[in-house]
Design a protein around this nucleic acid. Sequence first.
DNA 1: AATTTTTTTTAGGTTTGTCTAAATTTTATT
DNA 2: AATAAAATTTAGACAAACCTAAAAAAAATT
Lengths: 221, 221
Amino acid sequence: MIPNFSQAEENYIKNIYHLQQSTGFVTTNELSAALNTKPASVTDMLKKLKLKKLLNYEPYKEFQLNALGKKVALGIVRKHRLWEYFLVEKLQFGWDEVHEVAEELEHISSKKLIEQLDSFLNYPRFDPHGDPIPDSNGKMSVQQQLLLTELPLNRFSEVTSVGSQSTELLELLKHKNISIGTRLEVKRKFSFDQSTELELENKVRVNISEQLASVLFVKEL
Amino acid sequence: MIPNFSQAEENYIKNIYHLQQSTGFVTTNELSAALNTKPASVTDMLKKLKLKKLLNYEPYKEFQLNALGKKVALGIVRKHRLWEYFLVEKLQFGWDEVHEVAEELEHISSKKLIEQLDSFLNYPRFDPHGDPIPDSNGKMSVQQQLLLTELPLNRFSEVTSVGSQSTELLELLKHKNISIGTRLEVKRKFSFDQSTELELENKVRVNISEQLASVLFVKEL
DNA sequence: AATTTTTTTTAGGTTTGTCTAAATTTTATT
DNA sequence: AATAAAATTTAGACAAACCTAAAAAAAATT
Ligand SMILES: [Mn+2]
Ligand SMILES: [Mn+2]
Ligand SMILES: [Mn+2]
Ligand SMILES: [Mn+2]
């Protein structure tokens, strides 16, 4: 049986998991930035997580979660995303309001709670930001998705996820009336600034900057 | 604005609140028993809660929450009971399984979360144990209820709440097929041991001990 | 290859919430 | 009223999770 971890431990584990998705490894400074703590505090926790056999770590080296660590991380990600889905679908939260609350809810320890919640929500496969929700075995759906910047002109497509969850981004998307599930086509690309003209489902045209297009993932329909 | 309190502080506040319901005052030993901590730890926390102006406390004296303390306590009780209701009504928990989970959920801090949850649940007025749920202003319904031991013979009545939530009690009630909302009549009282014969709605007769009868609250119909 | 800069760790503190053991105060009993 | 018992507080420690400042190691630059 997997033991329980403290809220602090869980936050470290989850953040290591996300950071190691890109290169497979994480550095002390990266992690301290992600967690808003000092590098010295990270070192303390790395020793503890190594002792608890969740982490491959040698002093001064990059580190990564081992199999057990990843399993624990997926459990936390699962809880986080299920709660986000609950907040949006059942409690009328905006998709830009759920992250902080889920940051707390993800640490509730009851196993039964999360299984019943999953069932109550009808086993959703993606959270409100388009990120996949691991099932109780840690498996998650992959969506073949591409960046909006890579989408050719005049192809029907649907927004599947966003590359960041900063309030700033979500505020801008809300203003432009774009969210997960929005249908759109790219109508023009302007080479001067790489900005893009989109046509939304209701035929409304909106212009988005290259910075914005490069954090929107879509799938062709 | 009311500041946020730590999980430990909230558990102390809530327990003081419940304990002072009977005599208006609480002692160090009572509280340490309720919280499963040592009296010395209680003294430490009492000083802190007094400093934060939630508590009337002088060394070696009994203590009680002041108005602000009670307000904070009611907020925690509200969250606890709403979550219990959610677990039973939406997530298929048994009424004897919800307490521990609610013990964690009651500390989630989002104000919006609890208001939306209340609305989602349709503003329930009683939790699964029959205890009243404070509204967002701290007001709660009172139920004119009497102890089953005080109920005269042959009066139609309904179980409204239980005087304890120990697993032992809930196990026994489940075995006897009694829960909140069960309709019953007292048919006989045996003076030898004060045990009582009940008739349930389905005409089934069950015998309950004096100890059990004295923790069941009912209202006449 | 030597030097500088950056990254990481170590050493030593702090706060919160707990504990044990001893001291003090209050309450009960003789 | 004196003494014994019980309740409470104080003193001193400890673990978890953080911090700052200094030391050590690794990486980058000259
Ligand atoms: Mn979190
Ligand atoms: Mn998300
Ligand atoms: Mn609690
Ligand atoms: Mn209850």
